[in-house]
Computed example of a mutant assay.
Amino acid sequence: MSMQNDGEVQSSESRFAAQPTRERVGLVVDGANAAQAVQMIVDHEKAGVRQIWMTQSPMNPDTLSTLAAAAIPTTSIRLGTAIIPTYPRHPLTMALQALAINDLAPGRLRLGIGPSHRPTIEGMYGIPVEKPLEHLREYVEIVRAGLWRGKIEHQGTFFHVNASLPRTAEIPILISTLRVGAFQLAGEIADGALPWLCPIPYLLKTAVPALRQSAARHGRSVPPVVAHVLVATSDDRQAVLAATRKQIERYGKLPFYANMFADAGFPVGPDGRMSDELVDSLVVSGTDEAIAARFNELLSSGLDELLVLQVPVQDVNSERAQLARLIGQL
């Protein structure tokens, strides 16, 4: 494949810019209860939301199983994982689960995967985390071979897999991204980058250029950056900041995130405490009109898509419905 020139990179950007805003904004669905999550996805589709994302939290019900259930009562909403941890799940198993969802909802799954965090994987599962980016590279290679080509013949450092799948499915494979090395890997091997809690200036000045340069070096189209954005449908800024801090404060204690925050110019305290400036940089709030305007501003700045996570301030259910309506009417 030939290397891209600047014009080709621009054309990659324009293919996202040409899409309606509503197609570029996805909403995170809480997966703590599978039945409730399925109902939320059905409701979001009715509200006009075009993309939902679900995270596999350590002790939540299985996300891919929930999405398989949601595929049946819905018809068009896209279903994404952001992310499924790789270490606890064999890549052949991951490919076969994704294939099942594609059978139920052809063309609607976007598979986001990543190594998760050492305290979770080692502390909870007892699985050693060694060279996570190299592990992720092998993992993506296996999953893509299975889904896109239907045949896996892989003899690597971490996996030895030989298998043939019953059919192919060109499901987009996205990877979690925090620091520069992960964005470079996304540019090289992935169909999208899924940063989580990355301040916007860090994404625009550091991460996106690293991804684009890597894609160009490897002769690939630039994969989309699906930027994680916290959103509160409230114009009480102090209440928003307090609710946001409560929701995300644990991330300051996770080494991968603490390192990224330092890279972004927001080092955390020795106890993992996140500064007010960092919290303020991560959340969008205000009236529906102000939030929609900020979405458009972010999408015009060099970000391809937004992955919106609700920050409840007073009433989680009514605010979630309001946010879904807002996105569905963009």
Rank of each mutant, 00 (worst) to 15 (best):
P199H: 06
Y251E: 02
A262C: 03
I200L: 13
E13N: 08
F159W: 08
A210S: 08
N296Y: 05
R237F: 04
S281G: 12
G7C: 09
V161K: 12
R137H: 14
E170N: 12
P20R: 01
A100H: 14
I291E: 02
K205C: 11
T233N: 14
R212L: 02
A190W: 03
V283H: 00
V283T: 00
G272W: 01
A35Y: 10
I41P: 01
L99M: 14
A68L: 13
L165Q: 05
P91F: 07
G7W: 12
S2L: 06
G286W: 11
I142M: 04
L27Y: 10
I77L: 05
E13F: 12
E277K: 09
T168Q: 11
P172D: 05
Y202C: 04
A17F: 07
P199Q: 07
L230H: 00
T66H: 07
E289H: 15
E23A: 10
E153P: 09
A17W: 10
A35W: 10
A100P: 05
I189N: 01
L306Q: 03
K46T: 08
S214E: 01
Y202A: 03
A70D: 05
L197P: 07
L323D: 00
P20T: 02
T81M: 12
H117W: 10
A186M: 01
Q314H: 14
V240K: 01
P166K: 09
S164T: 15
G112E: 02
A227L: 13
V143L: 04
S164P: 00
S221M: 09
E319P: 04
A68P: 05
T177N: 09
